[in-house]
Amino acid sequence: MTRIIAGTFGGRRIAVPPKGTRPTSDRVREALFSRLDHSNVLRGAHVLDLFAGSGGLGLEALSRGAAEATFVEASSSAARVLQANIRELGVGTSATLVRERVQPYLQRGGPSAKADLVFADPPYDIPRGEMADMLAALEPALASAAVVVVEWSTRAPLPDWPHFLVPVARKEYGETVLHYAEFEPPATSGERAEPDEPAEHRTY
């Protein structure tokens, strides 16, 4: 079991699959959400939780004021646990579970509402090329100024970010590292690229 740290469901326990996933530790989640709260990312956000496992990240976001969360998880056993967690917390109207591999899902366009916040917590042994393809496939799913957070191993270099994602921070916690990036949409014809909130003005 693990727990929701703060917000509406603060202190509530959620189940985790017995094997096959790597739940984000309380310490890392607390640091992650403290930064997101400080940057005013969560309130009313549409969240996309990739490689969701038990759903700890997306459920924490809902607890702290996100409007809705889409959870993408291919493992049937993990998806069953996640569905039970959604039911136990009573967030069925704001949570959508997609039982599919991440890459095909993103290639089909992703969630119906573009994501303001994306969590990606892939297995550490995912091939580097597959990881790069996943990051590249995010573009159609992102809202303007979306934030992408990738949880990764400190022992493995992250593939290069695609051109539309600007890295803004990298924070290590023992064996885990959180990479933060912001979406920089390409300028449409005749327009200059002027993001509403430049990456250098945000703090994480």
Rank of each mutant, 00 (worst) to 15 (best):
L82R: 09
L82I: 08
A84T: 10
I86L: 10
R87A: 15
R87C: 01
E88P: 03
E88W: 01
E88Q: 10
L89A: 06
L89Y: 10
L89M: 09
L89G: 05
L89R: 04
L89T: 04
G90I: 03
G90L: 07
G90P: 03
G90F: 09
V91D: 09
G92T: 08
T93M: 07
T93S: 13
T93I: 01
T93D: 12
S94Q: 11
S94T: 14
A95S: 10
T96H: 05
T96W: 00
T96P: 00
L97Q: 00
L97R: 00
L97V: 11
L97E: 01
V98D: 00
V98C: 01
R99V: 09
E100W: 02
E100M: 04
E100T: 07
E100A: 12
R101N: 15
V102D: 13
V102S: 14
Q103E: 10
Q103G: 10
Q103N: 11
P104D: 11
P104H: 07
Y105Q: 14
Y105M: 12
Y105T: 13
L106H: 00
Q107I: 03
R108G: 12
G110Q: 07
G110D: 04
P111K: 14
P111Q: 10
P111I: 13
P111S: 09
S112E: 15
S112R: 09
A113K: 14
K114Y: 15
A115P: 02
A115E: 07
A115Q: 14
D116Q: 08
D116E: 00
D116L: 00
D116I: 00
L117A: 08
L117N: 09
L117K: 13
L117W: 06
L117F: 02
V118P: 03
F119G: 05
A120W: 13
D121Y: 06
D121F: 11
D121G: 14
P122R: 06
P122Y: 09
P123S: 11
P123Q: 10
P123E: 10
Y124N: 05
D125A: 12
I126A: 04
I126G: 02
P127K: 04
P127D: 11
P127T: 03
R128I: 07
R128G: 03
G129Q: 13
G129T: 06
M131I: 00
M131N: 02
M131Y: 04
A132W: 00
A132N: 07
A132P: 00
A136W: 00
A136L: 10
A136H: 05
A136D: 11
A137T: 04
L138G: 04
E139L: 08
E139C: 04
A141S: 14
A141Q: 14
A141M: 03
A141D: 06
A141C: 15
L142Y: 04
L142S: 02
A143N: 03
A143W: 01
A143Y: 04
A143D: 08
S144M: 08
S144Q: 13
S144I: 03
A145V: 04
A145G: 12
A145R: 06
A145W: 07
A145C: 10
A146L: 02
